[in-house]
Design a protein around this nucleic acid. Structure first.
Lengths: 256, 256
DNA sequence: GCCAGTCCACTGGTCAGACCAGTTGATTTC
DNA sequence: GAAATCAACTGGTCTGACCAGTGGACTGGC
């Protein structure tokens, strides 16, 4: 009788806190526990799951580190369900970079790819609704240029514009990942952003860029829309990346 | 005296387990605790950090759910440091999909973008070393075609080929993310993979595809290399995605 | 009737101590 | 020398306790 080659997969023991975390995660991902809803208190969960409080707490810790819930001492309503977000992605990307498993240049290059693709698809698939929404966001950005302290709100509107483009591209994942990479980047070089001296100039250039992108998307010029994203990111970040990886960044500029 | 606009950022309390986790994570990311090294036992950490064991355990739980460490009961050496990997990324991507925040179609489309870009860059930047390594991996895949039970090893070699392409593209991040998306995809539709009936045919087609990719990369034909990745993924997965998002997938096929 | 202040039940965060099952390596036995 | 045994660990889990903080109920004065 012949023996099988690899018929059995190794079985690893499942910890109690894992089963608890899985059950809760399942209900969150399935939508049964929508964002904003509350989990029972820890002592309630203890009796519901039939495990000790430390087990429940370790499960909640896992869920919290995954960004699915948030708990606050003294809250009689219990932990709050946050739902799935891109936070976890950007956290993972930040770890990759901080551990030197990938460089800042690779992060920028990656963002070039994502935003270019987002723009390209948006140029092809955008509806009139998408266009008016984007135009409105640019208008709002312009109105925020005058106020001195509106830089935070400006960046927020900027992010909304990118999200609108992502929606127009009909691929939310591209937008989510681009956002995650963006967050990871600013986490790394945030000190450079705080330079308020040329903030007005930066905002003006940013608005100009967004208008070009919108024009290309409106015209349905996919290659140009993609190229705009690449060029803008390269121009903005090329000086910040390590000199060694600068040529690689430039290599990702042209597409054909 | 004027009041500031938003001079203060809200301060959230830092839990003890967070500080513990941060300290350990810092040492792992900085390379001070390389993969394969061991953490002290929990009771040692208790005395080193001056906190209770539950606090230490919650910190370890966070690190473990981030894929940075792995612990095993009864191990006298303590928890093992795993280092940063793409596991966390694929886990996050899988959550996004399972929560219907993005569809399987978007995942496939995303993978098309990543692998296409990987191939494109590899076609431009590959060295002779890269080419011989890839050729060797294809040869190994061909040698695994005969053996009946080598499907697992075949997939492994497949992954190694993609990793070699990613290395040739000089952007590890692209490869890591492509791998993460790949894992997320197989996690979702793994039941389709187990069909061993046409495994040989599938392997033959796979080898054929990889040879075409290698040829394009060798020739430095970046657009063709990119197009090959797009077409192959579309051909392989188009039937598996929801019919509604099939046209979107097709829209991502052509590039210009 | 309304609002401020007080108070108390309860929350999550932390700790201490205990037990268990499992691993490991030294010890004993053949 | 090899195999069985054992004891000192490990991480996983449970219990019970305390603390600082929260929020709602209660109470007082107006």
């Amino acid at each position: 009788m012949a023996t099988f080659d690899a018929p059995f997969t190794p079985v690893e023991p499942v910890r109690a806190y894992q089963r608890v975390a899985e059950q809760i995660e399942e209900r969150i991902l399935s939508g049964e526990l929508p964002p904003g809803s509350r989990l029972p208190g820890e002592r309630d969960l203890v009796s519901q799951f039939g495990v000790g409080r430390s087990t429940v707490r370790e499960a909640l810790r896992v869920l919290q580190s995954a960004g699915l819930i948030r708990s606050r001492p003294g809250d009689p309503l219990g932990a709050e369900v946050l739902g799935v977000s891109a936070d976890n992605l950007s956290q993972a990307l930040g770890r990759l970079t901080r551990s030197h498993l990938c460089s800042l240049g690779e992060l920028i290059q990656f963002r070039m790819v994502l935003e270019a693709e987002s723009n390209r698809l948006a140029a092809r698939l955008r509806t009139e609704d998408d266009l008016t929404r984007m135009a409105g966001l640019i208008e709002r950005m312009r109105s925020l240029t005058g106020a001195g302290a509106g830089l935070r709100e400006f960046s927020e509107t900027d992010a909304l514009f990118h999200q609108a483009v992502a929606e127009a591209s009909r691929n939310a994942l591209l937008g989510l990942c681009a956002r995650a990479v963006h967050d990871a980047v600013v986490e790394i070089i945030e000190h450079k952003i705080a330079n308020v001296a040329d903030a007005t100039a930066w905002m003006a250039r940013s608005i100009d860029h967004h208008e070009q992108v919108l024009a290309a998307i409106r015209a349905g010029d996919a290659p140009h829309a993609a190229q705009l994203a690449r060029r803008a990111l390269h121009a903005y970040y090329a000086d910040h990346v390590e000199p060694a990886s600068r040529p690689l960044l430039t290599a990702a500029l042209e597409e054909e």
